[in-house]
Structure formats: C-alpha cells, structure tokens
Amino acid sequence: MNEVITFIWTVIILSLIATVIISLYGIARRPNLTKKLIALTIFTDTANLLVVLLGYRLIYPVAPPVLPSFSKEALQTFVKTAVDPLPQAFVITAVVIGMAVNVLIAFAIIQIYRLYGTVDARKLGEKQSTLLKEGGI
C-alpha cells in the first residue's frame, strides 16, 4: 500500500516538473510577447504549487493549519494532523505580488505595441536595428 502512495506522489511531482519545462519552452521559443506572458504565469503558478507540495503530509486524516477550537486537547490533535503553514504563508504573498508585477509587464507590452506597431519579438529586433542605423532613437 505504501508503494502505491509513493508512486502517485512521484507522478504528481514529475508532472509538475514537466509543466515547468513546457512553460520554459513557451517563454523562450514563442515569438509573441502576449504568449510569453501567459507562459510566465503558468511557470509562476506551477512553482507556487511545488512550494506548497513541500509542506504537505502523507497521513490520514490531514487538516488545514487553522486551530479548530480554543482548548489544549484540540491543540494536541491539531499538531498531529495539520500541514506545514510556512510555505503557504510565502505563496499567498507571491500570488498577489506576482500579479502586480505581471500588470507592469502587461503595461510594458501595450506601450511597446504603441511605439513599434508589433508584439513579435523577431520583428521588434529588426525594427530596433533599423531605427538605430537611421539615428531615429
């Protein structure tokens, strides 16, 4: 029975790593800047899920880190069943702050489209070099 649990756990971790690899491919190889932004968020979310996975416990029953009642007896069973709260505290700030940083990137993409008329990374490179040759910048 124990081996089944570890096997499923391993498959979960490996598929998360595969998602990270797919999103890195998207960030590096897709030419469209909007598509790069989508890949970046998928990367962030998967990294967050991996961090939360570090704090999980493979026991039954397992409980969230919220104290159910104000008594010393409840505290005993709570410490035995609750998951690790520290990774969760980090991920909450990472989700909301990462969103604010992504807003900044999105604004930069819109501004690039206004200035150059394209969001294709290859065309942007060509346009910048021609502008430099003409002395436009």
Binding site: I8, I12, S15, T19, I22, I59, Y60
Partner: peptide, 21 residues
C-alpha cells in the same frame, strides 16, 4: 484514504499539464 486525496490531486495536476501545453 489518503490514496483518494492523492488520486484527485493527480487528476488535477495532469489536467493542468494538458491545458498548459
């Protein structure tokens, strides 16, 4: 019983993998 939790987790993670691809 933990197996059921882990199986549900596996399904959601694989759905995530497919849709991110």
């Amino acid at each position: 019983m933990i197996e059921i939790h882990l199986l549900m987790l596996l399904i959601t993670v694989i759905i995530g993998l497919i849709f991110s691809y």
